[in-house]
Design a protein around this nucleic acid. Structure first.
Lengths: 365, 365
DNA sequence: ATTTAGCACTCAGGGGTATCGAGTGCTAGC
DNA sequence: GCTAGCACTCGATACCCCTGAGTGCTAAAT
C-alpha cells in the first residue's frame, strides 16, 4: 500500500511527540496538539493502518503507539524537518573548535567531548586513514646515557613518542646517527615495506652492536599497526543514564561497557565507506550489526581531512533519539572539523573561525 | 563503654556478611554461619548494644543490622583480617605490570585500568610531584618549513609534545638553535623561575624576529602548570552499575559524572600527605569531603617513585566495599608500581618481574 | 466516500488491604 | 551469663479493585 501524505504527517507528529515525551502517543494527543484538523477518530483509523503497515507498534492493546524501526527510518529519510542551529549554538561550537592544537589525537578527544556535551548523548570520534599511515619525520632525543625518547610524526599529523630505557649506555652521537638514518630510510614507508633486509642494512650502516635499531624498528611497527586500524575515542557515556530507556542499570551497563572499549566502535557499519562529506547517516536499532546496539541508534557524520584521513563523529542513543537536532549538530561539527583539519595547517588560527562559520554547512543532506 | 572481644567478633562477622550479601544481617544468620557458638538470642543482645554504641544501624525496626560508618571504621582499623592474594592474582598483576613503557602518563592509565578490572570498582590513578616538576630535556623537531614539534621530557618522566604550525617559514637551523638555547636556559626551572627577563634575554640571543621563543615558552608554561597540580586518571566507572547500591540511575549518574571529571579526584583528602609507602588508607562514606562521595568509600594506596613523584592508586565503591580484598590488591599494585617507577629506569625489563614478586609486599599496614 | 461521534472493550498502573516472615526485644528458666 | 520462647513490628509481596487512557468498531453526518 502506498503511504498517503496524511499518514506521513500523522507519523511525523507521532515521532516528534514520542521523541520529546518518551511515552506512547495516543490519537487524542495528536488530534489536539498537531493541528492537523482531524478528529481523534480519523487519526485513530490512520494510526491503525500505520500499525498494520509496520511503521508503528503498540506496547499493549490499550496503550498509545510507538514508532517502529521502520517508522523511524521513514521519519529520518523523509519526514524530519531539517533543523537549523541557533546562532548561540554555532558560536559555541566555533569557539570550542578554534583551538590551536593540531595533533590528531587531541583534536579527536576534544571533539568527542564537545559533541557529547552538546548532544547529551555518548559521542564517538573516529579517524581512519584512507591510505596506510606512514612516518613523516623521526627524532631521537638523547636524555642521558641510559635513556632516549623516540618521537615520530605521522602522515596524518598524529605525534607519537616513546621513552626508551637502556640497560647500557649509549652516546649522544649514536642517537643522532640513528635519527639521521631512520629519517633517511624509514620515512614514507608503509608497514609492509619494512623488510628484514632493510633492517639488516640499517643495522650495518650504524654499526649497531646493541640492537638499538631493533628497538626503534619495534616502535615504528607498533605505531604503524596501531594507527593502521584507525583510532577511536568515546566520550560522555554517562549521558546514557539520563535517558529513560536506560533506567535499567543492566541495560545501561551493557551498552556503556560496550562503548567504553573504543575498539568496538570501529566495527560500525559504513565506517570506511566513502560517502560524501558532511553527509549524515543514521543507523536505527536493529539495523545495527552489534547485538549491544539493537535497541540503540547511531547517528554519524563524516569529515574529511585533506591528507586522506577521513573519519566519523557520531553519537549513540536510544532509538527514540532527537534525530534532527543531533543530525544538525553533527553535520555542523563535522564540517568544521573538515575545514580545521583540511586547511588547518595552512591557516593561522585566527582565520579558522571565519571559515568554519560558512553558512552552507548549516544544512545536511 | 569498652567494646568487648566478643562484640568485635560479632561486628566483624556482620560486616563480612553484609559485604558479601548487601542485605541487612540478622542475628540468626550470624549464629548459624559465623560459628561463634552462641545462640541467636545472645547475638541479638550484643547486636542491640553494638547498635546503641553506634557501630550498627537498623534500616527499620524489624530488619537486620547494617554497619554504620563507625562500624566500618572499626572493622577496617582492627577487625578485618588481612587478605593474601592468591598466586594467580599476583602473577596476573605482575604480568600486566611488566610492561616496558616508562612514560608516567601511560603507566598511570594502564595501572588504572588494571586496578579497575581486578577490583571491579572504578579506579583512580594519581601522580603528584612532591617538588615542582621541571623540564629535563627539550627538543624541537623540524618537520617542514611551517611546522615543528616541541618535545619536552619532564623531571617525573612524563613526555609532552606539541605540534606547532607557523604562518611563515622558518629554517631548520633556527629550530636547532632554539632547542640548544632552551636546553641551556630552561631546563630544571620551576614555573616561577621563568621571568620576563629570561624570556627577553633568550629572544635576543637567538635573534627571534618571529616570536618563536614566545611559542615555546607558552608550551613550557602550559606543561609546567598542567603538571604542577598532578595528573589523574579514572578508569572503569561503569563498574559502579554492578553494585546494588547504584541501581538507582540518578545516584549512579551523579557519582559517575563526578568521577569522570578527573580533576575532582585531586581533591581527595590526604592526597599529598606524606604517609608511608604501601600504606593503605580508607575513607569511609561521610568521612569524605565531597558531597558526591558521602555514600561511598575510597581506598587508596600510595606509591613512591624514586624521583620525588609520589602518587596514589585507589578505588571508589559503596561503603559496603570488600575492604580487605581491595586493600590487598591495591597494596600489591602500589608496591609494584613503586618498584617499577623507582628502580625502573635502572633495570632491564626482565629483572623487574622478579623484584615485584618480593613476598613482603603481600601484606599491608 | 470520508469524517466524526459514540460506545463498548482492554489493560497497565495506582491505591488499598491482607498476609507473610524475617527480625527484634523481652522475659523466664537453665 | 546464656538460651529458649514468645509476642510484636513492619517492610515486602501478593492480590484485588478501580480508574482512565486508549483502542476498534459502528452508525450517523457531511
Amino acid at each position: 500500500m502506498e503511504i498517503s501524505e496524511r499518514k506521513k504527517k500523522i507519523l511525523a507528529a507521532i515521532v516528534d511527540e514520542y521523541i520529546s515525551t518518551a511515552e506512547p502517543v495516543g490519537s487524542k494527543t495528536i488530534a489536539q496538539n498537531a493541528g492537523l484538523g482531524f478528529s481523534s477518530a480519523t487519526i485513530r483509523n490512520e494510526m491503525a493502518e500505520l500499525t498494520a503497515m509496520g511503521f508503528l507498534e503498540q506496547p499493549h492493546t490499550s496503550a498509545g503507539r510507538v514508532p517502529s524501526a521502520a517508522g523511524y527510518r521513514l521519519y529520518v529519510n523523509e519526514l524530519m524537518h531539517k533543523q537549523r542551529l541557533s546562532l548561540e549554538e554555532t558560536e559555541a561550537i566555533n569557539r570550542s573548535m578554534s583551538q590551536k592544537m593540531l595533533e590528531l589525537d587531541k583534536i579527536l578527544s576534544d571533539v568527542g567531548n564537545l559533541t557529547s556535551s552538546l548532544t547529551n548523548y555518548p559521542a564517538l570520534a573516529l579517524a581512519a586513514p584512507s591510505e596506510p599511515v606512514t612516518i613523516k619525520r623521526f627524532d631521537l632525543i638523547y636524555v642521558d646515557a641510559n635513556n632516549f625518547i623516540i618521537v615520530a610524526m605521522l602522515s596524518n599529523n598524529a605525534v607519537k613518542n616513546k621513552l626508551v630505557h637502556l640497560p647500557f649506555s649509549v652516546e649522544r652521537e649514536m642517537t643522532q646517527k640513528l635519527a639521521t638514518v631512520f629519517n633517511a630510510s624509514f620515512t614514507s614507508l608503509t608497514e609492509d615495506k619494512i623488510t628484514e633486509q632493510l633492517i639488516r642494512t640499517t643495522e650495518r650502516s650504524v654499526n649497531d652492536s646493541y640492537s638499538l635499531v631493533a628497538v626503534v624498528v619495534g616502535f615504528v611497527l607498533e605505531v604503524l599497526t596501531e594507527t593502521k586500524n584507525a583510532s577511536a575515542y568515546v566520550a560522555g557515556t554517562t549521558n546514557l543514564l539520563r535517558q529513560p530507556e536506560f533506567r535499567d542499570p543492566d541495560k545501561a551497563h551493557e551498552l556503556m561497557s560496550y562503548l567504553s572499549d573504543s575498539s568496538h566502535v570501529l566495527d560500525l557499519p559504513g565506517f570506511g565507506e566513502p560517502g560524501g562529506d558532511n553527509e549524515v547517516r543514521v543507523i536505527i536499532g536493529p539495523e545495527n550489526a552489534a547485538e549491544e546496539l539493537k535497541d540503540s541508534s547511531v547517528v554519524m557524520a563524516s569529515y574529511n581531512a585533506g591528507d586522506g584521513t577521513r573519519g566519523i563523529i557520531g553519537v549513540v542513543g536510544p532509538t527514540r533519539m532527537d534525530y534532527s537536532r543531533v543530525a544538525a549538530k553533527l553535520s555542523y561539527i563535522a564540517a568544521g572539523l573538515s575545514k580545521l583539519l583540511d586547511c588547518g595547517p595552512e591557516l593561522p588560527p585566527k582565520l579558522q573561525n571565519k571559515l568554519i562559520k560558512g553558512d552552507d554547512i548549516n544544512e545536511q543532506g
